[in-house]
Amino acid sequence: MLKRLAAIACFGSALLSSTPAWVQDLPTIKSTTVELPAGDALFPGGSSANAINNNCLACHSPDMVLNQPPLPKATWEAEVNKMINAYKAPIDKADVPAIVSYLVQTKGKD
């Protein structure tokens, strides 16, 4: 009985009147549909951001990059290479210097 009471407390919304008594303490799990924000902002900086906007936004929005602290150039190069090599980002090799340059300019540190 205690168990039943606890279940009722936890899953009150599951108590439909037509439900047979023996399953009344089982929770109802309902199908769910949601809408997620698009996250379609661009990196700021006009033409200096072309390379990063063209190559990086398919997989993630810019905000986490812009939230990074200033980091050394070697760290930014390693990050871009990780995206390409580990995460298979379809980044144009020719665009890599411009992407690193943007990151160093916006988020760089000596």
């Binding site: 996250g39 902002a41 993630h60 905000d63 939230n67």
Partner: peptide
């Protein structure tokens, strides 16, 4: 909000 997509 740390990141919109994928959400953090």
């Amino acid at each position: 909000l740390q990141r919109v997509r994928p959400p953090l």
